[in-house]
Design a protein around this nucleic acid. Sequence first.
DNA 1: TTGAAAGCGCTAACAG
DNA 2: CTGTTAGCGCTTTCAA
Lengths: 356, 356
Amino acid sequence: MQSKKLGDNKAITIYDIAREAGVSPATVSRVLTNRAKVSSEKRDSVLRAIEKYNFRPNTFARGLAETKSKTIGLLVADVRNPYYASMFVACEMAARMEGYSVILYNFLGDVELEEELLGRLLEQRVDAIILLGGHVDELVSNTGYVEAVNNVMATTPVLITGKLDGTQCSAVRIDAMKSMELVLEHLFSLHHEKIAVVGGRMDVLSTYEKILKLKQCLKEKGIEFDPALIGENGGHYDFEAGYRQMNSLLEKGIRLTAVIAINDFAALGVIRSIHEHGLKIPDDISLVSYDNTYMAEAVEPKLTSVDYNYEEYGKTLVRTAIKLVEGMGDVQRVQMVEPRLVVRESSAMCRRREEI
Amino acid sequence: MQSKKLGDNKAITIYDIAREAGVSPATVSRVLTNRAKVSSEKRDSVLRAIEKYNFRPNTFARGLAETKSKTIGLLVADVRNPYYASMFVACEMAARMEGYSVILYNFLGDVELEEELLGRLLEQRVDAIILLGGHVDELVSNTGYVEAVNNVMATTPVLITGKLDGTQCSAVRIDAMKSMELVLEHLFSLHHEKIAVVGGRMDVLSTYEKILKLKQCLKEKGIEFDPALIGENGGHYDFEAGYRQMNSLLEKGIRLTAVIAINDFAALGVIRSIHEHGLKIPDDISLVSYDNTYMAEAVEPKLTSVDYNYEEYGKTLVRTAIKLVEGMGDVQRVQMVEPRLVVRESSAMCRRREEI
DNA sequence: TTGAAAGCGCTAACAG
DNA sequence: CTGTTAGCGCTTTCAA
């Protein structure tokens, strides 16, 4: 038996295995990659040597010798946000199914870091890059970033979940219009007409599209759009945003019977605010949100929320990325993910209706 | 100018840069690594060439040539759990500060995957591995896994956040005893004596230690320990566990004035259950939990929760890992992270006391 | 089916 | 301060 002292630093290589197994390094490589025929005796003896020495092929060496790394880079805003965490895990699982692995970087809202990490991904020779959040969410694409991405695209396909004008990136994204439509259909069916939107910024594509759709649906319904009902003041996507904006709505005495929170975080803030004002959900105000993270099930009342089917979304993203890598031509420039509404406790028939 | 057509596949190398800049490849390497003096004229011209060609050094080649990869592998149970997400981001930030990057893998509760991913990390030649959750949380270490980790340790230092008997792993972990002590001090000061623990399994080290400490503190206080108050029945760490166990406690009519939830998830289940039974928090029952994730601030009532100072924890983990890599000897086998209690709305003075 | 040998792109002596 | 050169560990022709 081979001694395995700690600090026995000389790493085992394919040559050691070859010697031990009495074959050539090339043969060891063949059994490792399984890409060529090897007689079963030799294969077995190689396998035994590998086992014996606890050998692991060096990814660096392999990466250098091969053209593809079988790795996808995922650049996200912040995995601590369960939306991104769900997307990441979904992608990781999908990737593993296809024999790929994924490298994850968080840029944490830092614009410089976002570009820097894009570069690091390139250095790591990932086969494709998926961009989630940040600049690709913006309504007006950042020119500097567009240039950076275009440079990347010269060597590595980039897949985005939003849009990036001035690039040839393929996109897989949630149908934001549709998601608003689902929410409104639901609320209309419950006879809500005074509907507020809380959280979100208009310079974010998905939010912009939602508001656009809101206006459109309202118009079709013959309901007048009241700008006071949507938070113009540069809202964000967290608890605080939901809380503060809802407070302001309530304190201004603006009439409303339903609230659409831009995500589950904001919804939590909305809940808090509503309760602090002595009102009840859904009795006094109905609440619907987006993302359907685990919080939607865990809070009181359980949230009616729009779900994106993360597993499917991740799969589509990864498979599309792989198509791009392997040049299997037929990739649509934009693919849409169908959202669906999960109805829970936070939305109910509008009571005020009877009063009117 | 260099043409940058898409599919211009031949990757740029250090040789191209050298030729362009009129220097040798070694000089290019020198400016890249910044590890040796280069005249400023040559440096500039190299830099210009790099810029011009948009050159990125190949990590595989570098990894092969160098002994260290400046990468730390992080193996966690599931980043969708905000506890792990927080730890990961904390580690990533700390690592970046030190010039390292981190590779994250999730094993998602899959025991086979846990071992497989450990192997993948080895193939990627990470300089150190940090294990978070899974087998290292277990009270009784899994022998197969111990062997696997011991094999890993022959080449790569492994740092854990729990324990792994039969290995020489260094550990940085939360002082679970202390964390229970903090909670109890708080509850005792509010005159609570009938205290339940909801969620958690006794075969998990941290939970086991907490219960141990609970018994000990109760004894010191002269309070009899009531086994009915702790969920023996193989609880877990999610909403459901908290919900079901709390329901059962309440439905059995067991007297209690305070609940310790094993984490914030379980606490959400507890809240739900308590409310469904027509009781209020903290008026009727006080609630304290562990982990202090963002949910603690976002739910109603805001949770009193034990915080681990993720930033510090991550920093300690990463720095210790680096010490291990760079062989700066003095690494304690076990380092403890000091928990602290964040008091919010869910805990208050025990009312029942007056009744007694 | 197998082995020899070249080469992937970078770093690090070594010699100047 | 700079260039030459020899690897790092693997895959992959090319011959046999």
